Amino acid sequence: MLIRPFDGSRRDAEGLLAVERGTFAESPYNADEVIHLLTNGEQRAWLAILEGEVAGFVTAFLTCTLHGRNWEVDLVAVQPVSQGQGMATELIKAAVEGAGGHSLSRSQIAPAGFAIQRPSGGLQIRHEQKCDLLSLDKARALVATDNLASQRAFTKAGFIPEETIYDLLLYEIRGFVPRPLDSGPVTVRDLALSAEEAGAVLRLGEGLTLRPDDVLNLASRKANEILVAVRRGQIAGFAELLYVETLLYRGIWLESVIAQGADREIQAALISEAVERAKRKGLDEIGCLVRTRRRGMAEGAEKAKNMENHLLREALIGQGCGVVNEYYIYRRGL
């Protein structure tokens, strides 16, 4: 078995897609689009070669958030006939080593913004500046609580799961007609590029150690947006949007939705605006993780201790999101 980076060839792209069709079977891309995504966009991939054929792959990409930078180990897929041989673990290890510079240059690690668009003339790639918020020192991955094989693979690759269990909620974009927005007392807009507004975000956020300049740097990136909810002239909440494009979908990841006092009206206004932005950009879906409980603790007891997350979950469902599954976050240092 050989593990190596995706080389940008049509043969590699077709081999990767064959594995994807035998596992996830969700990718909307053809071989040419996969080549553009993995060589010019923010995604990187490593392949497992067995007897001259692609038998598995892993993809990874960088995200920059208010809590730092993460090397996201996104998709891990192995052909069913090749499973159970440790291939997934070796692929994950390769992706982690790639983040450390063994397979990628510093400029390659920097994301290229919202990578692929489909104008009538074909593919178009946008590039942007690197994210210099914080050092890249950790990798993370989402693993379903019922996917024991993936849990074993990530553990063997040195990842450690958090004790918290999360619900993954998705909003699938099925039409592009704008929904009527509530003309209530809450308005949602982009964060103004001022130290005063950045400071307001830092005061609302929990455990944030950034400076206002760091927040403004993040908000100015093409792959990030920070929305603020304003009520009676004051910032009363914010949402952190990450624009992502993976082998399976193009969408918005809601990294955080923070409302003063866990106010349901503020949460709903922020989520609704994110949905409308996804529609205007022609995206596929919006995703968000919400803490539900810690392992070994009854769901009702956890809700009583963490009402803010319970209210956020209900606000997402109220705006049309559906619960997909329960997940762990796995982390390891780089």
Rank of each mutant, 00 (worst) to 15 (best):
L91M: 02
R211Q: 14
R203E: 13
E162W: 09
A236D: 13
L241A: 09
R313P: 09
S9Q: 00
D137E: 13
A25P: 03
T187C: 02
G52W: 03
V186N: 11
Y29I: 10
L168H: 04
R69F: 02
V228C: 08
A229T: 05
R118N: 00
G282C: 07
T164Y: 05
L270Y: 00
V78M: 06
Y249S: 14
I286S: 03
G101V: 02
N30L: 14
L2W: 03
H36D: 08
E33M: 14
A45G: 05
V257K: 06
L181I: 14
R4A: 02
D284T: 09
P161Q: 12
V78F: 12
L191P: 01
G237C: 05
L218C: 09
L168G: 06
R331A: 01
A157L: 09
T89P: 07
A274W: 03
A45K: 11
N325M: 03
Y243E: 13
S194A: 10
A192N: 02
A298I: 11
R332D: 05
K130A: 12
A13I: 10
A192K: 00
E240F: 10
A55C: 07
E26K: 15
L47M: 14
T155E: 08
G41S: 03
L37E: 00
T164I: 09
L283S: 00
I226A: 06
G68T: 06
V257R: 08
R126T: 15
V143W: 07
L218W: 04
Q267Y: 14
D12A: 08
Q85I: 12
V19K: 03
Q79H: 10
E276L: 06
I226C: 04
T65L: 09
G282T: 04
Q260T: 11
E245P: 15
G207E: 13
R44A: 06
G100W: 05
P212Y: 01
N224T: 15
K305M: 14
G113F: 01
P5S: 08
K279W: 01
S256M: 11
A31E: 06
D284Y: 11
A48F: 09
A13L: 14
A48V: 07
K305V: 10
E326N: 03
S220E: 12
Y243D: 07
R152N: 08
T59C: 09
I317A: 09
A55V: 14
I116A: 02
L316K: 02
K305D: 06
L2I: 01
R277T: 05
Q319I: 01
S135E: 12
L181D: 14
L191M: 01
Q117N: 10
V244T: 04
H102C: 15
R11K: 13
R152T: 05
R126S: 13
K281P: 11
E42H: 13
C288E: 00
A18L: 10
A223Q: 10
A229H: 01
G296T: 08
Y330Q: 09
D74K: 09
L247K: 12
R69L: 10
E14C: 12
K305N: 10
T145K: 05
